[in-house]
Computed example of a mutant assay.
Amino acid sequence: MLQAPQRTGLSGPTLIRLLTRLTDAEVLESRQSLSDHLSHWLGWTDAIALSAALNNRPPVIAPGSRPFGSAEERECVRVRATLADAIASDTAATPAKKHQDRSQAPVKKALAEADADYSNFRQRYLSLQHTMETSIGNLRSRLRGMVAARNGEMTRLAVVDAIMDRALLPKERALLGAIPKLLQGHFERLRLAEAAAMANANAEAETPAEAKAQPEPASEGDLTPLPVQTAAPITPGAWLDVFRNDMRSVLLAELDVRLQPVEGLLAALRAS
Rank of each mutant, 00 (worst) to 15 (best):
Met1Lys: 06
Met1Phe: 01
Leu2Cys: 14
Pro5Lys: 04
Gln6Val: 10
Gly9Asn: 04
Leu10Phe: 07
Thr14Val: 14
Leu15Cys: 12
Arg17Met: 09
Leu22Ile: 03
Thr23Phe: 04
Ala25Pro: 01
Ala25Lys: 12
Leu28Met: 11
Asp36Phe: 09
Ser39Pro: 08
His40Tyr: 06
Ile48Cys: 04
Ala49Pro: 02
Ala49Arg: 13
Ala53Pro: 02
Ala53His: 15
Leu54Glu: 14
Ile61Gly: 04
Ala62Leu: 11
Pro63Asp: 05
Pro63Phe: 09
Cys76Pro: 00
Arg78Val: 02
Arg80Asn: 06
Arg80Ala: 08
Leu83Tyr: 01
Leu83Cys: 13
Ala84Lys: 13
Asp85Ile: 01
Ile87Cys: 02
Asp90Ala: 09
Ala93Pro: 00
His99Ile: 12
Gln100Tyr: 03
Arg102Ala: 05
Gln104Ala: 11
Pro106Ala: 10
Lys108Ser: 04
Ala116His: 04
Tyr118Asn: 04
Tyr125Glu: 01
Met132Phe: 15
Glu133Asn: 09
Thr134Ala: 14
Thr134Met: 07
Thr134Glu: 15
Ser135Met: 03
Ser135Gln: 08
Gly137Pro: 12
Arg140Pro: 01
Met146Pro: 03
Ala148Gln: 02
Gly152Phe: 11
Met154Gln: 07
Thr155Arg: 08
Thr155Met: 07
Arg156Met: 11
Ala162Asp: 12
Ile163Asn: 00
Met164Ile: 10
Met164Arg: 11
Leu168His: 01
Leu169His: 06
Pro170Asp: 07
Pro170Lys: 03
Lys171Asn: 11
Arg173Trp: 04
Leu175Lys: 06
Leu175Tyr: 10
Ala178Tyr: 02
Ile179Leu: 11
Ile179Pro: 00
Ile179Lys: 12
His186Trp: 06
Phe187Cys: 08
Leu190Tyr: 06
Leu192Gly: 13
Ala199Ser: 07
Ala203Phe: 11
Ala211Cys: 15
Lys212His: 07
Pro215Thr: 03
Gly221Phe: 14
Asp222Gln: 03
Asp222Ile: 00
Pro225Lys: 05
Pro225Glu: 01
Pro227Val: 02
Pro227Asp: 10
Thr230Pro: 02
Ala231Gln: 12
Ile234Asp: 02
Pro236Asn: 08
Gly237Thr: 13
Trp239Leu: 09
Asp241Trp: 03
Phe243Asp: 05
Arg244Met: 03
Asp246Met: 14
Met247Asp: 10
Leu251Gly: 00
Leu251Ser: 06
Ala253Gly: 08
Glu254Met: 10
Leu255Trp: 11
Asp256Ile: 01
Val257Asn: 05
Arg258Asn: 01
Leu259Cys: 10
Val262Asp: 00
Gly264Phe: 05
Gly264Lys: 15
Leu269Pro: 02
Ala271His: 10
